[in-house]
Simulated scan of single mutants.
Amino acid sequence: MPASSPRERGEESLPRAAAPFLGFARLLRRHAFAVAPEQATSFMQAVTLLGPRSMNDIREAALATLAPSPDRRIEFDAHFRSHFYGDVKPSIEGEEDETRIKDDRGTREEESQDPRQEKGGELSSAREQLSSRDFQRDADGLGAFRRRVASALPARRSFRTIRTRSRGTLDLRRSLSEIVSADGDIPSPQLRRRQTVPRKLLLLIDVSGSMKLHTSDYLKLAHAAVQSADRAEVFTFGTRLTRITSALRIRDRDQALARAAVLVDDWDGGTRMGPTLLAFLSVPRFSAFARGAAVVILSDALERGDHADLETAMRRLSARAFRLSLATPLAGDPRFRPATAALRAILPVLDDLVDGSSLKSLTDFILSLARPAPSAEAIWKRVS
């Protein structure tokens, strides 16, 4: 008979009653939860100490020892019910109402769900549909944009200073140091001025079904911006929020878009614009990207149902951003007017409401962000 492994001998020494608890820890590990062997042991010890008197005691012991992250608590509870109550398929409560956030900085790949058959692009919907995309190489005409975007973005004065020969303030420390080194002679005073640096560019791209015809162009534009601008950030949103900046830092565009296609789960599905933007603002590291930035939202803004969340999110974004712009493909139609309830509600806080129907209109607009312009409300009131 072959000798058993230390792991097998350790498991054989456990009582049969411990098998369900050890199995639950293994189930969590299979679904990318970080559960160390010591945590599984602590879980079984906690159950022993609690009695337990009810299944709630076991759940509390699992939460205390296995320590799931807050953003995966609902999924944790679903796996708990599946394992201990015998549900065939974990039903994650609130999945239709809670916005998922995925950061491309070392996060796990979320489980895929069976895609539903819907006609993308014809109607705006709040229903979640997970699918994938494939981006093919073609001529994009973005060469001029790549060359100009870094210098065309709005600028701000940094707190850091650089030496200058004129039109600066006196650098007292360096001036005194030079006087000492010159044995008391008074040379030309040393001057410094504050540096001018480009502002951040934040692109929020709607990847819902109603935007299906434009998603490919928007991703190519985003890749060009990330490659050329020093401080560009890109997020996609539909029914979920996904940061894809790291994927777009890959120099080869095909590889970058292929990586982005894997990261984003909610291509061509429904849209929950208000909740996803609020989710963006609820993460301090993400909302910091918007502070003092030129924020461009690429979406048709066809929010279904109550638009209160969208209005709240846009007001908060406007308060943080240097300039808040909405580029909608609907504005490519000369007959377009911001007549929906959602657009009327957010128009007063928008700096720009522009045509997003083509790459040329978008690149021309982004390259003009440093130039002042009338507010969106003033422009569209004149048009109306």
Score class of each variant (00 low, 15 high):
F336S: 02
E122H: 06
Q255K: 09
R9T: 15
A36N: 01
D140F: 13
D217Y: 07
Q129L: 07
S175N: 00
R100H: 09
H223C: 12
V295D: 10
I297F: 02
A229M: 07
D252L: 04
L63I: 09
F145M: 13
S5I: 09
A331F: 03
A34D: 13
V383R: 04
E75T: 02
A342K: 03
L350H: 08
R9I: 15
E93Q: 07
R16F: 03
K212M: 12
A247C: 15
W380S: 08
T107N: 06
K200M: 11
S54E: 12
A36G: 05
T164R: 00
V234N: 13
E98P: 06
D300C: 01
I379V: 03
A32D: 13
S54N: 14
L257C: 13
T312N: 14
E38P: 03
V234F: 05
E128F: 01
L257W: 02
T328D: 07
I250L: 04
G292M: 09
A256C: 07
S132M: 03
T196H: 08
F135T: 05
R165Y: 04
P68N: 01
I250P: 06
G292E: 10
V197A: 15
I379Q: 02
L142W: 14
T161D: 05
P284Q: 12
R160K: 13
L362A: 06
I162K: 09
L241K: 10
F365R: 02
F76L: 08
A67T: 11
R320M: 15
L257I: 09
D104P: 06
S325W: 04
R371D: 11
L362H: 07
A36H: 11
R371V: 13
D351W: 01
L201I: 02
L66H: 13
N56C: 12
R160D: 12
R243F: 02
T312Y: 05
A17I: 00
A321V: 14
P90H: 01
A290D: 15
R240W: 01
D77C: 10
L369G: 10
A342S: 13
V47T: 00
M314T: 12
E311I: 01
L310E: 12
R320T: 12
Y85W: 10
D183V: 01
D185K: 00
A313T: 11
D266L: 14
L219G: 14
P52R: 00
Q227P: 10
A46G: 12
A341N: 02
R137E: 15
S299M: 10
S384Y: 03
L347K: 02
A341G: 05
D364M: 00
L324N: 14
Q129C: 09
I186F: 03
S228D: 14
H79R: 10
G86H: 04
Y85S: 15
F76N: 11
D140Q: 11
G141N: 08
P374D: 04
N56H: 05
R108W: 03
W267R: 06
E111W: 11
G51E: 10
L172T: 00
K119N: 07
L204C: 06
D114M: 07
L369S: 07
F322D: 15
G143I: 09
S208C: 13
F289I: 01
R291T: 15
L367Q: 06
K119C: 13
L330N: 06
S13A: 11
L310D: 07
